[in-house]
Design a protein around this nucleic acid. Structure first.
Length: 205
DNA sequence: AGCACGATCTGA
DNA sequence: CAGATCGTGCTA
């Protein structure tokens, strides 16, 4: 029957939305396990999907590179709440940054999603990015531009499966994972600058 | 109310 | 490697 031709397309990806307990852990563990998972965005009826290939963990008051270092403010409030919520902020007068809140209520933590590899809706991502070269979504600012993410999504619950959420992908074995110091935190204390809390897919960039 | 600066990106 | 560009948080 005719609809068989369309059936397989709809189940190209197993829909398994990541649950809150996934996020409710130390942000370093979450960052590591985020690699290989899918970031999904529903935008004007279109579905955009990418495989997460780079992420950075930010902790609480003990991490001088973290927005939570100097306590709670209106901007970073999501970091202090329950896990599984988006934290989006604006930097350099230009770029949005998409984070996932981790840990437990009252204990701030987040993971910055730095890069995805487009799996679905690549054309739409390119359109949103404009004609700015072949590289799509390497870099947290570009990623947000490609997915149409801005601060209106800060505080959004990622476990409801609407607007933006994460789904289970193929887990990456340790031999495919590279770690290193986080990017753009020159102002932070040496111990935080040196910490290898950036996780990325090997052979990426 | 004013100010310094940032979890960045681009193109010269 | 400088410039863009503006929200945020700190000082007053």
């Amino acid at each position: 029957m005719k609809c068989d031709r369309f059936g397989p397309l709809k189940i190209r990806f197993a829909m398994e939305t990541l649950v809150r307990s996934f996020y409710a852990r130390d942000s370093r563990r979450v960052a590591r396990n985020l690699l290989g998972q899918h970031l999904v965005r529903s935008l004007k009826g279109r579905r955009l999907r990418g495989r997460i290939v780079e992420a950075e963990a930010y902790l609480g008051p003990q991490d001088s590179a973290s927005h939570a270092y100097r306590g709670q403010t209106p901007r970073n409030a999501p970091m202090f709440g329950p896990a599984g919520v988006a934290y989006v902020y604006f930097v350099y007068g230009r770029h949005h940054m998409f984070n996932v809140v981790t840990g437990h209520d009252g204990e701030p933590g987040a993971v910055l999603i730095r890069s995805i590899e487009p799996l679905q809706g690549r054309a739409e991502m390119e359109r949103r990015r404009g004609k700015k070269g072949p590289v799509l979504t390497n870099g947290p600012g570009k990623l947000c531009q490609a997915l149409g993410v801005d601060r209106s999504l800060s505080g959004w619950d990622l476990t409801v499966g609407q607007k933006i959420w994460l789904e289970k992908g193929d887990p990456l074995p340790d031999r495919k994972v590279l770690t290193g110091p986080r990017v753009g935190i020159a102002y932070a204390a040496a111990k935080d600058r040196m910490a290898h809390w950036r996780f990325m897919l090997k052979n990426d960039r």
